[in-house]
Design a protein around this nucleic acid. Structure first.
Length: 872
RNA sequence: GCCCAGGUGGCGGAAUGGUAGACGCUGAGGACUUAAAAUCCUUUGUUCGAAAGGACGUGCGGGUUCGAGUCCCGCCUUGGGCACCA
């Protein structure tokens, strides 16, 4: 079956083949197959109200080329698509219109599906997933319960980022420079009861797992930096006289003899204890102000240090020196121990602080090449002794070096000193080695309507204890060892899971989707849903009081948008499986995606959270095939407006994919996005540029089809030159697809068609060329393929291979250089020796001009390429 | 401030240390056409030259090499990430 058209009528051709692929399930992936599998994954889109963006098809086309290429290579390919459909815009739309967010979400999904289908991707549409579908989020909730059961989900009254505009709590990762990532609204600190996932427990695994996965270096680096592992020493500085100890954490224990003050974070519990009466007032004032300051202000004013002396002192455990204790907000309560030893000579921040408050600076580390300089043995307190100006200007000296003025540790290197000091501290019991992370636990609850409800009930402590004591609570083996509870108005509430049978816990209907002003989820308005009665033996839930049922309150927070995207790649493997999140057989077969493509903006958030869940699921035996979810990752670049700036409505440089498809067709759009430049680069869209690839496709059409719409006659045999070009093209296209260099693959195909147009090719070569082009431009090639009499899809046809013997030319070009400059070229037989080439070269007048009267120093011959003569 | 990736014609971009500018766009000239569109052909880094041909040329300055866009050192600049993490 083909289309009845004479010209390249993509408006007829493209919908025809799209429907045929859909109807015949051409790209259906089998869960049981003797074939080797290949799983290509796109980061699934959030179906926004504005429809598909021109950037979406970039990644999708790249993955599609790979998918079709793998099909042609005999793989059983899984290339699915789905919708990350929970999210704020849908909720805001619901607030504005009063309409349930699912209605708008469904509409947007439909639009996205149509748009994506209009681009002809080889997707298995039977595996579509939607994170807002209860059949999907049932398992998101189930995973949450597993995390809960294993003690990885807990509640805490935490200072969190609260965004008044969005009326929601945000995760650390969602706050950028004191503003919300979404919407760019100001955020503030607020204490709220929150669900938190203990991602920190996986810090080391998340770090180690990066080692042998094929990811962009920059993304790995970002995750490494985000996890922020550091090894150091915790030391005790005893408050004088005989007070409690201040625990500090340092990665530079080698500088401990250079400590000239300690700093406590304003929120540190010992602040009051160390403060002397005469300083109490100003310390309290300082702490109070620091608390009021948002983190934005605290970081914004980072340049200008502030702090107050407490009047108290502590003893340096290494040398017994009395060290003044300060309070300053450049020390954060949330990292390390909330207290530091300050070594101004060897730390920029401490140095700045010491300068401002006139605190002594004591140098204890010198660069290795300086240590031999005379006069260095003597201790010098640089403050107030400006003799050695050079030295002073060198401070702070933050690099590793050699210790001076450090008692028994003198002359050790930084590395040796750290080791010996740690040993001593541990022996004498005033310190211990410690590992710290910048990574914080993941704030997992949101005060929103449009998210997965957290499947938890809250019951009073007395009920909880009794049920456990009686040993017949349904949740006996479903709760963590450590009770998750919180106190409110003198009552302690304990978290219990709802029974698995009651999943999915669906969102209740409410009158309003607006959170309350005090930061409670809109779900609190659903009173009937909220207050229930539960039977602790059976897990049954009732809306009315009954014998054997006790009152319970539902958790009203919902999950963040990241939840659904943490495991969708698993659901694609068996989207309809009812007994678990993934069918173990399907998981064993598909393992994990072989290729994952999506934007670099997800380098830390989604990609870290998903890894965390996957590692957890693997550890707890729920998954068994792959420890890491994404073995190979690629980030496509961003397509800018034609003015070179980011596409935005306000700039008026937005390109609408529907418009492009209408004007040039899906094949042109796909081809152009791939031809634009390297896949990972940022590149501007050009309206004229797409004309070029459109012309190319028209040229391809005209090469196969005559003016009457009939397939042309081809040559019986290829000219040797075109034969070589064909095999070069097979080679180049194949290699470029493997390395994702689609722009140069397309350039090679253009070269081929330009030559073929002039010289003509055999029928067989014409068929091969279509196969090469098929992953890039599937519609036009499928149509021409069918017109050539083929009855099965071109993407399933065996991928062409090149014949290496055909790549060898019988005559080759040799470049003649004088002193490395190209002066002439000659054509010789490909088996010509250097001697023969020199003989020919010496007959070239043009070349000889540059040699005449010169002394020949040297001749360099690069076989088959260059003869370079060095003259003087 | 720190870390990373870039900087090549009018434009997007090609180039395992070996002919810089493939391929495409744009511009110029031509063919076909009554005309236009489409298509096809020639040409298109700068500069000197009538031409043949020469000189210069991959952000800037050095270096290594027979030979550097590519490797090394220093700098300028654009983009991305991190940012008091002790």
């Amino acid at each position: 079956m083909t289309i009845d058209c004479k010209n390249y009528d993509f408006r007829k051709i493209e919908p025809f083949w799209q429907q045929k692929w859909l109807k015949e399930k051409t790209f259906h992936a089998e869960n049981e197959s003797p074939k080797e599998k290949y799983y290509v994954l796109d980061m699934f889109p959030y179906p926004s109200g504005t429809g598909l963006h021109i950037g979406h098809p970039e990644g999708y086309t790249a993955s599609d080329i790979l998918a079709r290429y793998k099909w042609a290579n005999g793989f059983n390919v899984l290339h699915p698509m789905g919708w990350d459909a929970f999210g704020l815009p849908a909720e805001q739309h619901a607030i504005a219109t009063g309409q349930h967010p699912s209605i708008n979400t469904e509409k947007n999904i439909q639009r996205f599906r149509e748009q994506i289908q209009s681009l002809g991707f080889a997707i298995d549409w039977e595996r579509e997933v939607d994170t807002t579908d209860p059949r999907y989020y049932r398992w998101t909730q189930w995973i949450f319960l597993q995390l809960f059961k294993h003690g990885l989900a807990y509640v805490g009254d935490k200072p969190v980022w609260w965004c008044p505009e969005l009326r929601s709590v945000l995760a650390n990762e969602e706050v950028i420079n004191g503003r919300s990532e979404r919407g760019d609204f100001p955020v503030e600190r607020k204490n709220l009861r929150q669900w938190v996932l203990r991602i920190t427990k996986y810090a080391d695994k998340l770090l180690q797992g990066l080692e042998d996965i094929d990811w962009p270096d920059s993304t790995k680096r970002q995750q490494i930096a985000w996890i922020g592992r550091s090894e150091g020493l915790e030391l005790d500085f005893e408050i004088i006289p005989y007070g409690p100890k201040i625990h500090i954490y340092t990665t530079r224990s080698d500088t401990v003899f250079g400590v000239t003050f300690l700093v406590l974070a304003p929120e540190h519990e010992l602040v009051e204890r160390v403060t002397t009466p005469e300083n109490r007032e100003k310390i309290q004032e300082y702490a109070h102000n620091a608390k009021k300051k948002s983190d934005l202000e605290r970081t914004d004013l980072a340049k200008e240090k502030s702090g107050v002396f407490t009047g108290g002192f502590a003893k340096n455990p290494f040398n017994g020196e009395q060290i003044p204790i300060w309070v300053a907000d450049y020390v954060l309560i949330s990292y390390g121990t909330g207290a530091i030893m300050a070594v101004p000579a060897h730390d920029e921040r401490d140095f700045e602080f010491a300068q401002k408050f006139d605190i002594p600076v004591k140098r204890v580390i010198v660069a290795e090449n300086l240590s031999s300089r005379p006069g260095f043995e003597e201790s010098e307190t640089l403050h107030g002794s400006p003799e050695d100006k050079v030295l002073r200007d060198n401070l702070p000296f933050c690099a590793d070096g050699i210790l001076i003025d450090s008692g028994e540790f003198n002359e050790l290197t930084t590395e040796e000193a750290k080791r010996k000091m740690a040993q001593k501290a541990e022996q004498l019991g005033f310190g211990k080695r410690a590992v710290k992370y910048k990574l914080r636990d993941w704030l997992f609850s949101r005060q929103r309507y449009w998210g997965e409800p957290i499947p938890i009930l809250w019951i009073e402590r007395s009920h909880y204890d009794r049920a456990l004591a009686e040993g017949k609570a349904y949740f006996l083996d479903q709760v963590p060892d450590e009770i998750v509870s919180y106190e409110k108005d003198g009552v302690e509430w304990c978290a219990i899971p709802i029974i698995e049978k009651q999943l999915p816990l669906k969102l209740p209907e409410t009158d309003t989707y607006l959170p309350s002003d005090d930061g409670e989820s809109p779900l609190v308005h659903a009173k009937r849903w909220l207050n229930v009665f539960v039977n602790l033996s059976t897990g049954e839930i009732s809306n009315n009081p009954q014998t054997g049922f006790i009152p319970a309150v539902r958790e009203t927070n919902t999950m963040p948008q990241w939840a659904g995207s943490c495991w969708y790649y698993l659901r694609y493997m068996s989207p309809d499986y009812e007994k678990g999140l993934v069918d173990p057989l399907a998981e064993t077969y598909w393992k994990s995606p072989d290729f994952y493509i999506g934007g670099a903006e997800h380098a830390v958030l989604h990609l870290l959270y998903a890894r965390f869940w996957h590692l957890f699921l693997y550890d707890s035996g729920i998954l068994s095939a792959a420890q890491e979810p994404f073995r190979k990752l690629f980030h496509q670049g961003i397509i800018l407006g034609s003015d070179g700036s980011k596409m935005s409505k306000s700039r008026g440089n937005v390109v609408n994919p529907d418009e492009v498809v209408r004007q040039y067709g899906a094949d042109s759009l796909r081809l152009y996005e791939m031809f634009l430049g390297p896949l990972d680069a940022m590149k501007p869209w050009s309206t004229q540029g797409i004309e070029g690839v459109y012309r190319f496709l028209k040229k391809v059409w005209a090469f196969y089809v005559d003016a009457d719409g009939q397939i042309k006659n081809f040559l019986t045999e290829n000219d040797p030159a075109i034969d070589r070009l064909l095999h070069e093209t097979i080679k180049k296209t194949t290699e470029d697809i493997e390395t994702l260099q689609f722009n140069t693959a397309i350039a090679q195909m253009m070269i081929f068609i330009n030559a073929a147009q002039k010289i003509g090719v055999s029928h067989q070569s014409a068929v091969i060329f279509l196969q090469l082009l098929a992953p890039f431009a599937p519609h036009i090639t499928e149509e021409l393929w069918a017109r050539l009499g083929q009855s099965f899809p071109i993407s399933k046809a065996k991928w062409p291979t090149y014949d290496a013997s055909k790549l060898v030319a019988d005559r080759i070009k040799i470049i003649l250089q004088v002193n490395g400059k190209m002066r002439d070229e000659i054509l010789v037989d490909s088996d010509a020796t250097q001697e023969r080439i020199e003989k020919i070269a010496w007959q070239q007048n043009r070349f000889m001009v540059f040699l005449s009267g010169k002394e020949i120093m040297k001749k360099i011959y690069i076989p088959g390429k260059i003869l370079n003569v060095v003259v003087k």
